[in-house]
Design a protein around this nucleic acid. Structure first.
Lengths: 209, 209
DNA sequence: TAGATTGTTAATCGATTAACAATC
DNA sequence: TAGATTGTTAATCGATTAACAATC
């Protein structure tokens, strides 16, 4: 179960499996074979079986996989059976949008605070949550067991803030700033570089992939 | 120059090269070897040379690469020498945030309109731009030469809207909806599945990668 | 010219796919 | 039991890295 060295390629596919399994549940489908699932997802059945087997034998020969229990297993593998506490750093448009977007809570990702360096924003309420000054960040992270810091600040301040987060022993950074962060290896970073994504699109428009 | 069949793995790395080259320009550095760049970026020099050579011989033996001209070449490869016109579909928090985020324009990505199905939002102004009803979408796309549609609407409506976009011969869809879109192969789709990204982070927190 | 560094071929590594024996 | 489908090993494919001859 607790296999080591699962490649990030495999991990990246897990949320997609989860999504398809949720759909199957909604459709009231109880069991599915790797064959059928592969048709829906447009991946090989081989890949599905390989991916799942990294974490355990969830299927049954001659039967396939039970949708409900596979769903729960993958959710568990992804750590969705635990709650995660988050702070947003940067109360600009993107920070506010993420805070207002309710659906993360459904998955156990709970926003506990939002911070900004701009004094004009302090005390402003977003979804019943007051924007706090950066000076309070460090104490807040410790006192509230924050796991994940969401960086929605400009590139220029991202590096300095990251230093602080490392001192606080933050577990993970969800980075929307357009810069690569240097962190110790026990701090996880997931980058969401929106402009990179847009450039890829622009490339693919030209050379009709 | 116009090589075919460049893998998406390579394309995904181009925006990052561009970013580092921009930094080098800012630092006033004129030339750089693959060796030096590899140290900064934490990738192998081999990979840098391989990647660049897919598109042409931009370097010079014994010298390295000229920062300014390599920057321009990569920008060109990514299609950043052209303007792209975009519409946002879904004037919720995320749609508004993207519209307000100025930096895309710098790269030639110009927002031309924002649409929403909710009549209460129609006429509302976001950055001097009125939210338009969905009924006007199709004509707007044709008349304004829109290349890219940004989908910031819920899963449920995304599929139906995509149908419309395909009829309009949209070139690309930047998809923030939590669903896989089925499109003809001449329509490019780039998915930004935020919750998938967050789940990956959650996974990596547990199994300390 | 000598030194540096590319462009490119060859070797390695890892990820995906195919095949099939195990088994429900 | 016979049929279906997994778990898993082996084969293939593609991407990354190493090596080095070409050349500025």
């Amino acid at each position: 179960m607790e296999e080591k060295d699962i490649s990030q390629a495999v991990v990246s596919r897990l949320p997609r499996y989860l999504r398809y399994l949720a759909d199957l549940k909604d459709e009231g489908i109880e069991r599915i074979s790797s064959q059928e699932l592969s048709k829906r997802m447009h991946v090989t059945a081989s890949q599905i079986r390989q991916d799942l087997n990294h974490f355990g034998g969830f299927g049954q020969q001659g039967y396939g996989y039970n949708v409900e229990s596979l769903y729960l297993e993958i959710a568990k593998i992804l750590g969705l059976d635990h709650q995660h506490y988050l702070v947003i750093i940067g109360a600009g448009n993107l920070g506010q949008a993420l805070l207002n977007y309710m659906n993360f809570a459904r998955r156990g990702f709970i926003f506990k605070g939002i911070f900004d360096s701009n004094p004009q924003l302090h005390g402003m309420k977003i979804r019943d949550m007051e924007v706090k000054p950066m000076e309070e960040l460090k104490d807040f992270i410790c006192e509230n067991n924050i796991d994940i810091a969401v960086l929605t600040i400009p590139k220029a301040s991202a590096v300095a803030v990251t230093e602080q987060l490392i001192e606080c022993k933050i577990k993970a950074i969800w980075n929307f700033a357009h810069v690569d962060l240097a962190v110790p290896e026990d701090v996880q970073v997931e980058n969401v570089h929106l402009s990179d994504s847009l450039m890829k699109l622009s490339y693919n428009i030209r050379r009709n992939r």
